[in-house]
Design a protein around this nucleic acid. Structure first.
Lengths: 126, 126
DNA sequence: CGGTATCCCATTTGATACTG
DNA sequence: CAGTATCAAATGGGATACCG
């Protein structure tokens, strides 16, 4: 059986950039799992994220309807992010990835280490 | 309840670059679902992939123990890629992403379109 | 507090041409 | 057939400083 040339339609996840595979979106979703969070709160577990990148991430998520952004008109300002139903629907996926990693990351890392020295593209070693 | 600063350990999927979120790996896995495939076979459904990028993708997958590469010493050459058990274990994840997209991509795209005109970072419109 | 504004770098992806 | 080689473009992510 040969592969279908139209196996991957044009709206494939890889064509339409649905940003779950980026560096921070998955972690942001998990941060919001327990309820609404402020910008500053998110920066705590997301230790290495810069404000610029966190803003970009949240704006993209807001644009895609994964989170809502609510700015309370107070002083000092208070901005709260919350998962939408759409965003919440991604939690099982995030968790599935996490579970896979827990179960298989060791094997993957071992495989990666094994292929350190040997780089012969030659016909399989005997 | 405040967020745990150590919520994301250093071996988090985002820290150790496990390449499933890249452009082609997921699709390659699905191409190999039905059994071993040759390099040229993979290029058919993966229409827009260049040989260079497909090679890079396959090499990375091989290094991580997701596929095996078997070069038969014939003329013309014949090279066959096959999913390992580790790689096969990713199929449920890939499928879950696919299912999510089938069910929610429309909603996401609509949300994205809605946020086209309006870019006010202002306190929620009345 | 919740961001912006710049500037910069690394990685990823692609176009094109060529080869054992 | 199954790749390499070379070059270029795009994207993502980050460092640093500043602002209402």
């Amino acid at each position: 059986m040969s592969l279908d040339p139209d196996m991957f339609p044009s709206y494939c996840p890889s064509s339409v950039p649905v940003r779950i595979g980026d560096k921070w979106t998955g972690m942001v979703i998990r941060c919001l799992e327990g309820g609404p969070r402020r910008f500053g709160e998110l920066r705590v577990p997301l230790r290495r994220v810069t404000p610029k990148v966190l803003t970009e991430t949240l704006r993209a998520m807001e644009r895609d309807g994964l989170v809502t952004r609510t700015a309370h008109d107070e002083n000092p300002p208070r901005v709260v992010y919350e998962l939408t139903g759409l965003g919440r629907g991604l939690l099982p996926l995030i968790d599935a990835v996490g579970t896979w990693c827990e179960n298989n990351l060791d094997a993957l890392l071992r495989a990666r280490e094994r292929h350190q020295g040997l780089r012969p593209t030659a016909p399989a070693m005997q």
